[in-house]
Amino acid sequence: MALDRSDVEGIAHLARIAINEQDIENTTATLKDILHMVDQMQAVNTDNIEPLAHPLELVQRLRSDEVTEANQRDHFQQLAPQTENGLYLVPKVIE
């Protein structure tokens, strides 16, 4: 799978990860190596094989509809970089 610099920039944007200008080339090369290894998968025919998402193939358990969590806002917001009046603050979101 051919992967070029602009692909890497696109993926990095999707993943919201800044990559320094000087690292892009190196990152591209490494990702190419990894994808090259990953491409070994294409060697095997998997037609008619069901994908397996969970090893045990069990079924989702359901919880009863009860409120079990109390307000811990102050506790949680001690972890936050910036809050005001109980809100988490981020740079202005443009609608």
């Binding site: 692909d7 890497v8 993926i11 990860i17 800044a18 990152t27 990702l31 990894i34 994808l35």
Partner: peptide
């Protein structure tokens, strides 16, 4: 995310995103 994650973590995030 660019500064908070190290190289290997970023690499895997990129591979997974791709």
């Amino acid at each position: 995310r660019g500064e908070g994650f190290g190289a290997e973590v970023k690499r895997r995030i990129l591979v997974g995103t791709y």
